[in-house]
């Protein structure tokens, strides 16, 4: 973890409350979700491995129990925003990144 470098990705104002946007980081598409109530940001891969398209940031954000999730806009499978696990098919998961708010910047560890 000590080797991790925090990198500025975008401004907090680029994020959308309770919803997602997408950033391009080292050629990878990263979906960023923002929960203003708890000031939390989540970063997961934008690639939907089931629908096979770069669309996850356009999914609906919600919760299952206490777990924050996004539902794919294509076929509605839900992904845990903290672990990347697919709740509807346990054999599938997506990549996640450590992410934080630093002042007004959104930073990713990569």
């Amino acid at each position: 973890m000590s080797e991790q470098k925090w990198k500025d990705i975008c401004e907090l104002t680029d994020l959308v409350d309770n919803s997602g946007v997408c950033a391009l980081v080292n050629g990878e598409q990263v979906a960023l979700f923002y929960l203003p109530a708890s000031q939390s940001v989540y970063a997961v891969s934008n690639w939907d491995p089931i629908g096979e398209a770069n669309v996850l940031y356009r999914g609906l954000m919600g919760s299952v129990g206490d777990t924050p999730v996004v539902a794919s806009p294509l076929y509605k499978q839900r992904f845990d925003l903290t672990s990347g696990l697919c709740l509807d098919d346990e054999t599938i998961s997506i990549k996640t990144w450590p992410v934080r708010l630093h002042d007004k910047a959104v930073q990713l560890a990569c």
């Binding site: 959308v16 409350d17 309770n18 919803s19 629908g51 398209a53 770069n54 669309v55 356009r58 999914g59 609906l60 954000m61 806009p73 294509l74």
Partner: peptide, 19 residues
């Protein structure tokens, strides 16, 4: 209201299989 909409309503268009 924007974060409530299904993607088709958010982007006011119909998403196809390739996004």
């Amino acid at each position: 209201h924007v974060s409530l909409q299904d993607t088709n309503d958010t982007y006011l268009a119909n998403m196809q299989k390739d996004g």
